[in-house]
Structures are given as C-alpha cells and as structure tokens.
Design a protein around this nucleic acid. Sequence first.
DNA 1: CGTCACGTGGCAAGCGTTTGCCATTTTTGC
DNA 2: GCAAAAATGGCAAACGCTTGCCACGTGACG
Lengths: 334, 334
Amino acid sequence: MPPPRRRATITDVAAAAGVAASTVSRAFTRPGRVNHATQARIMEVAAELGYAPNPAARALESGRTNTLALVVPDVTNPYFAGVIKGAERATATAGLTLVIADAQENPATEEQIVTRLGPAVDGFVLTASRLPDDALRRAAELNAVVLVNRAAPGLACIVSDFDTGARQIVDHLASLGHRALVYLGGPAESWSGARRWAGLRAAAQQAGMGATRFGPYTPTFASGPAAADAVLAAGATAVVAHNDILAIGVMTRLADRGVVVPDQVSVVGFDDIFGSDFCHPPLTTLAERTEDAGARAVETLVALGPAGRADRDVAPRVLPTQLVVRRSSGLAVS
Amino acid sequence: MPPPRRRATITDVAAAAGVAASTVSRAFTRPGRVNHATQARIMEVAAELGYAPNPAARALESGRTNTLALVVPDVTNPYFAGVIKGAERATATAGLTLVIADAQENPATEEQIVTRLGPAVDGFVLTASRLPDDALRRAAELNAVVLVNRAAPGLACIVSDFDTGARQIVDHLASLGHRALVYLGGPAESWSGARRWAGLRAAAQQAGMGATRFGPYTPTFASGPAAADAVLAAGATAVVAHNDILAIGVMTRLADRGVVVPDQVSVVGFDDIFGSDFCHPPLTTLAERTEDAGARAVETLVALGPAGRADRDVAPRVLPTQLVVRRSSGLAVS
DNA sequence: CGTCACGTGGCAAGCGTTTGCCATTTTTGC
DNA sequence: GCAAAAATGGCAAACGCTTGCCACGTGACG
C-alpha cells in the first residue's frame, strides 16, 4: 500500500506548469482570462497531478462554499425522499453540492444543525421545520433560508396547496355518502398538520359534514393501533390520517380487529408515499409534488444568493396537490 | 428586514472579550489550556455575538474537515434509509458532520462525487459502490474509504452475510417442499447481487435444489411485470428476487394475473425494507442490519483516521442476516 | 530568597485559494 | 511606425483559524 499521498495544491500545479499560482487559479475560475495555450497546459498538468481545488480554501477567501444544506425532520421518512431527490437534482444542475442533515424530529437538534452548518453552507432548505418563527428569523439573518411546507413572516417558502387538497378529500368522502370525518392529527408543532386540519375543517363545514380531530399522534406505523382503536370507539365511518404512514398503521390495526376497509371504514392519507400503492388495501391519499418542492426550494435559494437578499417577492409558492383515489375509500355504511 | 449581518469571527470575539484571537481559539479547542475565568468570559461573549467557528478556515489549517461523506446509489431507495440513519447516528456521536450524496446509480456520477467532495471531507463511506476496483483504490489513496456491501482488495468493508442468508432462504424453501427456485437478478454491476446469487446457487446445490437465474432486471417496482411473466412462463413455484422492491412488483403483477401468492408461487425478497411488512401478502425476506452497517462503517472510518491508514486489519466485517418469514412463502404446489 | 516548573496568554507564521493592482507584451487603429 | 488599448501574467494581501514558540507571572521547593 502506497504512503498516503499528499494532495496536489495549486502551487504544485503552478510549479509544474511554470506559471504563477494566480494564473492557475484564473485558469479554473475565469477561463477567458488566460491565454488559450497556457490554459491548456495548466489543465493538462492539473489532470496529471490529480489536482482538485480545495473547497475549504476557496470558501475561506470568497465566503461562498457552493454548498447548500437540506434539513429534514427524518431522513428515513419516505415522504422526504421526494424532496431530497428534487433538491439533489436542482443542486447538481446549479453546479453546487448538497448536504443533507437529519433533525431527528427535534427542534434543538435542528437549531444546532443550523448553527454548526451555517458557516459551512451558502443557504438552507428547511423542510417541515419545527423551529419557532423567531429562531427561523435569526437563522435567516445569517444565511439564505427557504422553507418547505412551513411558512414564516418574511421568509421564502414552498408549500403544498392543502386548502384545495383538503377540499378534494372532503368532496370525495361526501360524494361517497359520508356525513362526518375523523382527522387523526400529527405532532402539535407540525405546521403542515395544522394546515391540513384547518383545510379539512373549513371544507367539511362548507360541505355540511362533521369533522373531529383526534390525537396528536406521532406519525408512525406504531401509532396506528391507538388511533385505530379510537376511531372504532367513536364509530366513525371515514378517517383522514395526518399522513400515509399513520394511515397504513391504522389500516393494519383495523384488519387485525376484523374491520374491513373500505366497507366499514374509509381511510384517507396524506403524501402518497412509497408503499401507499401496494399496502392493503391500496390507500386513497393526497399526493403532493414533493420532488418539485425540493427542486423549487433549491432554485429559490440559488436565486436569493448567498446573502439571502429576499428583496423580491417572498410570497409563498403554492404547489398543487392531487387526490389519488385507490381502494381504501368507499361508500359510507348506511 | 435588517441588512444581512456579517458573521462574527474569532477576532470579533477576541476584541469583545479583551483577549487575543489565539486564546479564543484555544478556549474552543483545548478547554484545559486557558484559565477557567477567561474561558467562561470568552464563551459568554461568543454566545452573545452568535459566534460559531468557520469550518472552512478550520479545515484549511488542520487539513481535517470533521466531515464524512456517505455515498449511496439512490437516496430514495428505502434500503439505504437504514444505512443513512445508522451513519447519521454514529457521525453525530463522534461529533462530526455527515454529508449524503446521491450517485444516481451512475458510476460516472459516483466518481465525480468522490473527486469533488474529496478535499472537503475526511473520508468516504461508499455504499454498494458501482465503481471498479481500481477507481476505488485510487480514491483510497487520497481519502479514507470504507465500503458497505462491496468488497475490494485492501479496502475496509462492511458486508452482510449473504452466504448464510442465502442458505436460510434455500432451507426455508426446501422445508416447504420446493424443489427448485428462480432467482430474479439485479443489475450486472451489483456486487451484492453477485454474492446473493452465488450464495443461493451454492446453497441450492447443497440442498439438492435446482436454481436458475433470470434477468438482469433493474430492481424497481416497474420491473415487476416482466419478471413475473417470466416466472409464470417458466412454471416456477418459488422465486427469490434481487430485492424487496422487485419482489413486491412481482407480487403485484402476479395478483393482476390471478396467481395467488403463496398458494401457487412463493416469493422471497432481500432487504426487509419499509413496506415489506404491509404489502400484500406481507413479504418473506432476508433482513440485513442496515442501520448497523452504516454505523459500523462510520466507526471504522473514524478509527482509520483521515489519513486512511489501513495498517490494521482490512478483513471484511461481516454482519449477520436474518430471515423474516411472512406470508408470501408457503408450501410448494404438489 | 533564588531557582524551577508550571500555568497562562500573546505573537506570528502558515494553511490553499482568490483577486486587486500593476508590469509587461501583444494587438489594434491610424 | 507610433500611440493607445487590450491581453496576459505576476505579486502580494487577505480570508478565519490553529499552533509552535516565547514571555510573563505565580507558587513550590530547597
């Protein structure tokens, strides 16, 4: 095994090519600025030496790191997979590097991430942030920040159209003859959870349907039994869960208790995650354009620039949602 | 909106606390080295100014970035969620930062990631790397590298025990009366795919069972129909898929064609991903300790040090697997 | 009371790059 | 051919931090 090779620096390349370091630097950053022949020679030598510019040194001088951070509450949650994918794609297109950080559903962890990573990145995409408004404002003073599925005064954000989405769900259930619905709420700090419930309640009222909120439940498979039992105890015929994972957990418990979905209870979720098409029965759910959301967020961040000058419109960009009707929703029991 | 505030530097803190910059630096990096009272004052001032050390500057001096990179072929693939989670946890424990990069199942992209990110990180965890051995060796000359579910001469790696796992699968199927199995192969470059097939074939031979490989298939839901149709055409009673996603895709197609799993065909997957417990029917699959793998990989990387001195044993660390029997496997049709 | 060790803090160099400024050479326009 | 302008490349400072080295002051020891 060869000794750990020292990485070639710009000076090494300069020496080998017989030019000054500054010329090498320009060859990489301002291609037009140096003579064509010199440029070619430098590039050749650089390739030969395996030279790659040191990002740390670059960042130090310019203050720009060409790195964006995406913070999600839980990387293993398939809901965020789409956001990650979209952000990843948009970042690559912009020629930047993306760092993904896991806040572990914990505001303190999230704040720590923002503090520690702050100087190392040009901006943050905070997805479903659990941080209070003033913490977000503070973060936005030091870094460009774009929110996804969370709104805060003065900050750019990308949100799904939960109002229309909720109306679609309610209309769907109403058209199946349901007269009331139960909403299984997610975490209390969840902004999107609040929006979902607000949308459902408003739409239900407009449609003359009853709407009750249960919970909060942690939106995991494991919360399914508690939620399902509560639904059965209440005698509900239609239940809308905070998200698909919870919905699937509920359906699993209902099956265990011999309750047939959708014949006896209709179940609707939010997110259309991986798995909602092959669970049993396949889940009716409100699909969000998560990949778009991630991509849009990064694009907005790039447009904002590292200073985070939000002089432009900070009006929320609203992404459409779409109700995917599968087999978990059916006619109300008469 | 306030003007974009300049980030406080170590000099600002030093000035505000009435000490030299070096003292502030030491207060952060060598707590015992400065007077207790001075230390306290510095910390207080630092907190007040919202100071956080600039990682780029730190990295420049020390050559260490305190950042590790985890490269996965596809972040949205739930199989890698466990690896990510485990790596994330171990990295946090070690007080480091983790960067996750998506190679998009593309060797060229993977190589580019390693090149571009190389100077910015202290080491790489390459998961299911598609890179050829010599590219891996080159990468390992410049950075510490640990492989997950991939082996290469001279490099540290964490692998699942596919030999034992394959034997468990074969024994299970044999005990259900199956006399032969069909393996639905994954991508040709997949190292773990090769190991899976090798293990299955060896175990089948030992058990006196037939074993045939079909494919390769891209391991996605969408490949299910093609694979399922091939299985039916061959009249197989037991099928083992390269991974759970493919297995679920196959089961979906089988259901569409009116074939009952497991009564007519038994299906077994690899990975035990999110969803394999609630698909229909729940999938029998070989569970790997993916979270452990991620954590172990990071720990190994940390132990290696930034120089990547693999003087120590580079023997593969083998992680046990476990067969999770659910309802997709049953008695062979007689 | 002198010597020594130790605790504590400052100075300054250096990490690899970028960039403003200047000097030199080449090109252009007349 | 000459002056002016453009092209090209070098010098050196700066980015924020770490760290080897040194200086100073204090307490311990003989």
